[in-house]
């Protein structure tokens, strides 16, 4: 088993498609970093001038109405119970020059906004890795030669799937490390806040957990791609099924059968990575005010994180079972 796995890993390392997919994923992450660079850069002279003008106007208005605003604010604050999240210092209403400059997010906000995008890219890349590592063997016919050396198909299946996962993990790690390090560098270069006390430690923990959940999604993507490639025996066929799924289940099904909104992977992956996701099911009833007509309203259903994991995981398991059954029992050649 370990010999086969070593051989599969050597094969994967030497396969250009693996490097191309990994490179595309990392390029995508760099693209996310570029947007962060653009978002955190120092304001231009024009922006500073415009902000100064706006600030001067605000100061004039504040001089005229500031007292009244403060009075109204303090009355409203007094009405709030102690500890209410809506309470704040009314003095903050006074205009300050920084408030008129473009907002420059800090490290946590930059990472929070980008971890999901990076995760989606990783999941798609991992799906491709799984599909190409297995599908190319069938397309070239090398699998027939391989089976004359390693005829136990269950073992061959397991080692190919394991190799695909082991190839995916470093790509996932590299992508998240690249994102974190590059965002930190961006923040340092542009002198925006990095680890400010304003961001709670639990927020960082939540962010790391979300990244870890996306790593699990990427592994699931690899397994899904590999399983489908074993079942369909061609990367093109796997991509065809993926496109069909996107069109039929992720898009059309929501419109045709809203009650099946729990099925699309987008909903379940969102639920798994963010803790929950929602989908709307319109519920219609006769309109008492207009006989013969109906009035409809959306009822929102929540998909929990566990449910998302179970549904998405079930799809992965189904693909793997189909792949294993097909590989074990169908002729090769």
């Amino acid at each position: 088993m370990s010999r086969l796995l070593r051989a599969e890993l050597a094969r994967a390392r030497a396969r250009p498609a693996v490097w191309v997919v990994a490179g595309l994923v990392l390029l995508g992450v760099l693209g996310l970093v570029l947007t962060a660079w653009w978002q955190t850069r120092s304001p231009s002279a024009e922006q500073v001038a415009a902000a100064h003008v706006a600030y001067e106007e605000a100061v004039v208005r504040w001089d005229e109405t500031g007292d009244a605003q403060l009075r109204d604010c303090r009355e409203a604050q007094r009405a709030l119970p102690p500890g209410d999240p809506g309470r704040f210092d009314c003095a903050l209403l006074a205009p300050v020059p920084e408030a008129f400059l473009p907002l420059r997010p800090g490290l946590w906000q930059l990472a929070d906004e980008r971890v999901d995008a990076a995760g989606v890219m990783l999941a798609l890349g991992a799906f491709m890795l799984g599909a190409t590592l297995v599908g190319a063997e069938f397309a070239s016919g090398a699998i027939a030669t391989w089976l004359t050396f390693a005829p136990r198909r269950g073992q061959v299946f397991a080692t190919k799937v394991a190799a695909a996962v082991l190839v995916t993990l470093p790509v996932v790690a590299a992508a998240f490390v690249l994102l974190a390090v590059a965002l930190l560098v961006v923040c340092q270069v542009h002198a925006v806040e990095t680890f400010s006390p304003g961001v709670l430690a639990t927020s960082w923990v939540d962010l790391l957990q979300r990244a870890a959940r996306w790593a699990a999604v990427a592994v699931g993507g690899t397994l899904l791609g590999a399983g489908l490639a074993f079942a369909l025996r061609h990367v093109g066929a796997v991509l065809g099924v993926a496109v069909w799924w996107l069109a039929a289940v992720e898009s059309a099904l929501r419109l045709v059968l809203p009650a099946a909104g729990w099925l699309p992977l987008a909903v379940n992956v969102t639920a798994w990575t963010r803790g929950s996701a929602e989908y709307a099911v319109p519920v219609c009833r006769p309109d008492p005010a207009a006989p013969g007509l109906e009035v409809c309203e959306n009822v929102w259903h929540v998909v929990g994180g566990a449910q998302g994991a179970v549904v998405a995981g079930s799809l992965v398991v189904l693909a793997l079972v189909l792949g294993l059954v097909s590989f074990r029992w169908r002729d090769v050649g």
Partner: peptide, 11 residues
């Protein structure tokens, strides 16, 4: 050897 020799083309 079954039919044509089949190996990984890029290796």
């Amino acid at each position: 050897i079954v039919e044509n020799p089949r190996f990984v083309p890029g290796f």
